[in-house]
């Protein structure tokens, strides 16, 4: 057998061994055996000294070629075996991905806060300031400056928690409008403010009444504010909260601190205007009261009614939340049952 034939045989056999081997250690052993200094190729090549000068380089080149081929075959087989090993490993690591993840705790903002934040962000975007005021108010700001003089029916003890003859728990957020009018310097530009907060009424708590609830007032006072501006602002607000497509109804109404006054109804959620129990068969649900600021209110705040005018609006945060989320008992907001609170996880 010529040297070349021996090499060819060797190659043949080694390739077969490489294909047969199934683990990396064995493969490594083959590599050492076949390609190592004491390996069969080296052994065969020792016989080269018996070859002619002419043949020696040819066989040498051939031997190198086989060495390279075998090295490649080993590498290829190694990659193959490694991939297999990884695959086995991964298969071994397989988890039941349907098992629950580790709970991550996140508290929920109160649904009333969510409504307030949403409204605040909306109005801030339109250039309004947010004003807080006092929960304990005086008669002057809660009533008198809002065109409700002494003996006005709205000032009756029945509806108001008085602390002294002059001090009371604010019954609405409008005192902050009076305070703003009182303090504002129009040299700094127009008044554009909202004021969300807690108010109190002398009511017995039941499904639709609460002695404590939340309202938001807003007002804009400038040189050329129109009722059309009020209408546009209210439409924008209500559509933002209750959805674009909802029909609105603007209805004349009466409040001591605005003239003309308006109440806004939205088409009933349940029946969409046809009439049902929720809307008391009217097809409409009242959501908001507003109007053009009464001249007496402006005058009480020291504003020149010949130059400035504007609008004011007030809405019930609890009522908005009840309508938006279908809450049927206002007491839910103040009992703080965590099962109730934690359902409002979708913020905004």
């Amino acid at each position: 057998m010529s040297l070349k034939e021996q090499l060819e045989n060797l190659q043949q056999k080694s390739l077969q061994d490489i294909q047969k081997v199934v683990d990396l250690d064995a493969l490594n052993q083959i590599r050492v055996e076949v390609l190592g200094k004491k390996g069969p190729i080296t052994e065969v090549l020792r016989g080269m000294r018996d070859l002619s000068n002419e043949e020696r380089p040819k066989v040498g080149a051939f031997a190198n070629e086989i060495k390279r081929d075998l090295a490649q075959a080993i590498e290829a087989r190694k990659a193959e075996l490694e991939a297999k090993k990884v695959a086995t490993q991964l298969a071994h690591e397989t988890l039941d991905v349907t098992l629950p993840g580790q709970p991550v705790k996140k508290g929920t903002p109160h649904v009333l806060t969510q409504v307030i934040d949403d409204l605040e962000d909306l109005f801030i975007g339109m250039g309004y300031q947010v004003v807080a005021g006092y929960e304990v108010e005086d008669e002057k700001h809660n009533f008198e400056m809002l065109n409700m003089p002494a003996n006005h029916p709205a000032r009756d003890m029945q509806d108001t928690f008085y602390i002294t003859d002059d001090l009371l728990m604010r019954t609405h957020m409008s005192p902050n409008e009076a305070r703003d009018l009182e303090n504002h310097d129009f040299a700094n530009g127009p008044i554009k403010m909202i004021s969300p907060g807690r108010v109190y009424r002398r009511d017995t708590d039941d499904a639709t009444h609460s002695h404590q609830f939340y309202q938001m007032e807003g007002q804009v006072i400038d040189k050329n504010i129109t009722m059309a501006d009020l209408k546009g602002t209210l439409e924008y607000t209500i559509h933002h909260i209750f959805g674009e497509g909802r029909d609105l109804r603007f209805r004349p109404s009466y409040f001591p601190f605005t003239e003309p006054s308006v109440e806004v109804d939205i088409a009933c959620f349940r029946c969409n205007g046809k009439g049902c129990n929720v809307c008391k068969q009217t097809g409409w649900i009242e959501v908001l009261g507003a109007g053009m600021t009464h001249p007496n209110v402006l005058k009480a705040g020291g504003v020149d009614t010949e130059v400035y005018g504007g609008f004011a609006f007030g809405l019930g945060i609890d009522r908005f939340a009840m309508l938006k989320y279908g809450v049927d008992d206002i007491r839910n907001f103040y009992l703080n049952d965590v099962r109730f609170l934690n359902q409002f996880t979708q913020e905004g």
């Binding site: 339109m126 127009p190 546009g232 603007f250 003309p260």
Partner: peptide, 27 residues
Amino acid sequence: IEEVARLYGYDNLPSTLPTGDMTTGAL
């Protein structure tokens, strides 16, 4: 003004947003 507005129809009033001097809104 209210008597005119209500007989004219609140529904017939145009719908606009206040214009005038810019104000910045921020917490």
